[in-house]
């Protein structure tokens, strides 16, 4: 069970307090209506799935309830850093 640092609580807590929430830094387009079907399809379905550094979202569901971002290595399963939603990509 992973230990995850919540950047809002500033505490390292057990994974069972958290919920995974998919790839990070995929902002909802400002004007979806202006997008082509293909661009919209990419936004909806296509994800990076990298081998290595993965930017992803977690929610501290059973803690502060906040969504935040993290960089986790998909090979070693180790977190490099977690940071608040809205902060620039690390």
């Amino acid at each position: 069970m992973l230990l995850i640092h919540c950047p809002y609580c500033d505490e390292q807590r057990a994974e069972l307090e958290f919920a995974y929430a998919g790839e990070a830094h995929i902002a909802r387009p400002d004007d979806p209506a202006a997008m082509s079907d293909e661009d919209w399809q990419y936004y909806l379905f296509v994800r990076a799935n990298p081998r290595g550094r993965h930017h992803e979202r977690w929610r501290h569901t059973h803690g502060c309830g906040r969504f935040f971002n993290a960089v986790r290595d998909t090979l070693s399963d180790k977190f490099e850093v977690t940071y608040k939603a809205g902060e620039p990509r690390r």
């Binding site: 919920a19 929430a21 909802r28 979202r57 309830g65 906040r66 809205g86």
Partner: peptide, 13 residues
């Protein structure tokens, strides 16, 4: 509630 929190916190803060 989770879905609404997600939009509220991350898309429309």
């Amino acid at each position: 509630l989770n879905m609404m929190e997600d939009y509220l916190q991350t898309e429309w803060p």
